[in-house]
Amino acid sequence: MATVAFHFNVAHRNDYLCRLIRKAHRLGAWLCVTAPAVRLDELDRLLWTFDPLSFVPHQRVRSVPPSPLVGAPVWVQLAETPRPREPAEVLVNESGQVIAETAGFAKVIEVVGHAEADRQAARARWRAYAEAGWTLERFEVKA
């Protein structure tokens, strides 16, 4: 069963996510970000623009299977439905829902902002993951 890491007190969610994705890519981890389509479209755009001196190679996966790419593999995927691969390492959950099936993922990351509604929803997901027997980690993000 996967480990779920909650990153609490994130002040600037988009910047934090882009930096987290970039770090995972630089470390060579395969990463999938799952969220509703509108959110994934926003992240797709942000990964092109958040740092003018770097680029995070990524693929926006739609409902149809992705076409094979020529060259280096794409280690960052943005998908409405999590798509584990071998080796599948990290799933970033931006869906706001508990991830029921994590087969193939070693870690699930939940990013939690300052807003009370965000914190309450995260607490509910924490309880659901705990009741399901998942290993939970808590990280307090410093400003």
Rank of each mutant, 00 (worst) to 15 (best):
R119Q: 15
G133R: 02
P82E: 08
L69D: 05
A79Y: 05
A121F: 01
W134V: 04
Q97G: 09
C32Y: 09
E42T: 12
T3D: 02
K142I: 11
E137P: 03
G28I: 11
D15N: 15
A130I: 03
E140W: 05
G28R: 11
R13G: 09
S54V: 09
A115K: 06
A121Q: 09
R60H: 15
R19A: 00
P73N: 10
I109A: 05
G28S: 11
T34P: 14
V33M: 15
A37P: 08
A143H: 00
P57D: 12
P73D: 12
A122C: 03
L91F: 04
A103F: 06
H58N: 10
R138M: 01
R138C: 00
G113Q: 02
L46Q: 13
V64S: 14
S54Q: 13
K142V: 14
H58R: 10
A122Y: 01
R83L: 13
L69Y: 01
S63F: 07
V64R: 14
R39P: 03
L136K: 02
L17D: 12
P87E: 07
V111Y: 01
I109S: 03
H58W: 10
D41F: 07
F50H: 07
L31R: 00
I99A: 08
S63C: 08
F55N: 10
V76L: 09
R138E: 04
P36C: 09
S95A: 08
V112Q: 04
I21M: 12
V98K: 07
N93V: 03
T34F: 13
G96M: 02
R22V: 08
G113C: 04
D15R: 15
G133Y: 01
P82H: 08
S67Y: 07
V108A: 03
V90W: 03
H114K: 07
V90Q: 04
Q77F: 01
T135W: 02
E80L: 05
E42P: 05
T34A: 14
E137N: 07
L69H: 06
E89I: 07
R22F: 11
R60N: 11
L40P: 14
A11K: 13
R127V: 01
L46S: 10
V98A: 11
V33P: 14
L53T: 09
W48H: 15
V64G: 12
E110G: 05
E89M: 12
V33Y: 13
F50V: 06
N9R: 07
H114R: 09
L136P: 03
L91H: 03
K107M: 10
R123N: 05
E89A: 10
E140Q: 15
P68F: 09
L136Q: 02
A103I: 08
P52L: 14
V33E: 13
V76E: 06
Q120Y: 06
S63M: 09
A117K: 11
L47G: 00
F139D: 07
L136V: 04
S67C: 08
V64Q: 14
A106P: 01
T135V: 07
R26I: 08
E140K: 08
